Amino acid sequence: MEEELLLVDPDRGEPRAVAPAALRFAHPGERLETELQREQLETTTRPCHALADLGEQIRDARLAASRAARSTGAEVAALATSPVRVQPSLTPSVRYRRMAAAYARTAAEQLTCGCHVHVEVSSPDEGIGVLDRIRSWLAPLLALSANSPFWQSRDTGYASFRQQVWVRWPSAGPTGLFGSFRRYRAVVEDMVGSGVLLDEGMIYFDARLSRHYPTVEVRIADVCLRADDTVLIAGLVRALVETAARQWRAGEPPDPVRTELLRLAAWRASRSALHGDLLHPVTHHPVPAHRVVRALLAHVRPALAAAGDLNTVEHLLCALLCRGSGADLQRAAHRRTRDVAQVVSDAITCTLS
């Protein structure tokens, strides 16, 4: 698991450009890294099998990031965009400077925080079989994780405005069918060879093969406000990967749905999340969001049961649906206080709970 966290002023809620300084206070072995902007830190967990272990690691990583941030007078908040107005500050690396020059305002405004789930696969070919078979099921993950309703101190009307900002990158979003690892590599090489992307690290698909690990990396989710919701997303992603791998091994063909429809499904999830309609991952027609969530759970139920995760995921999912997404909690805080700084203050507490 990788989580990107905002560094914020604990009183005013403003993002603070202190990531390099905060890392100097990190303890040896704490898996913290800088990101594109100096107002954010990335945490990483170790590989694990049990969701309980993962949950403990996520909380430990958030606490480690908080300790490092506090050493600079800042705090961490698991917010996918900043509720408070901000002009981001680029992390001063050669690569990030090249990105800033190449992508102009898209890079300059890109202060967004996502949640990335890595799941091991047995081979690159299996990984492509998985990518081709999970495409339709990714938008519901965005709906469940939606945690970015505010942008530059205003309510955007979106549950995940991060998604709207993120897809400005030229390679971001859903993908078509690859069919084989060879074809996947040819697509990646053609994209890098176009000169539009600086390097392979800028392959920002909603789900991709990791460059560094033998994993499928699912990247569509907002960073979740609560650690429990991160565990839920991880459990669902692992079950989706296992379900797709079983289908691939059995020779079941992937859904040939066009990428254009997948882009619409992600937009719909970004706009309204669990309120109103989502596109059903099988029919691709609009249905109430709760039906899509039930369909997702039914689709992965055998894999969840086989991993011993079914009860945990059902419990976490029920809790999220009862209390609302991160976007719901942020808006509730704003309705209560009419103050975006208080939204951030509440988020700091939720991040570490």
Rank of each mutant, 00 (worst) to 15 (best):
C113E: 07
P124M: 02
W151R: 04
D155H: 00
P124E: 12
Q163W: 09
R135M: 05
D132L: 10
C113K: 02
C113Y: 04
A139M: 11
S153A: 01
R162F: 01
I134W: 01
N147F: 08
P124A: 09
P124Q: 10
F161G: 06
I134D: 02
S160F: 06
A139D: 06
A146C: 08
C115L: 14
P149S: 07
S122C: 15
S160A: 12
V117M: 05
G127A: 09
D125N: 13
G129D: 04
R154Q: 03
E126D: 13
L141K: 12
E126M: 13
H118K: 08
D132H: 04
V119L: 11
R133A: 15
L138K: 11
L131V: 08
L138T: 10
L141H: 09
L144I: 11
P149Q: 03
H118P: 02
Y158Q: 04
D125Y: 03
C115P: 01
F150G: 02
R133V: 14
F150C: 04
V119Q: 08
C115Q: 01
S123R: 11
I128Y: 09
R135S: 09
G127C: 12
V121Y: 12
P149E: 00
S136G: 13
I128K: 09
A143W: 05
I134S: 04
R135V: 07
S148Y: 06
G129L: 03
N147V: 08
S122D: 14
G127Q: 12
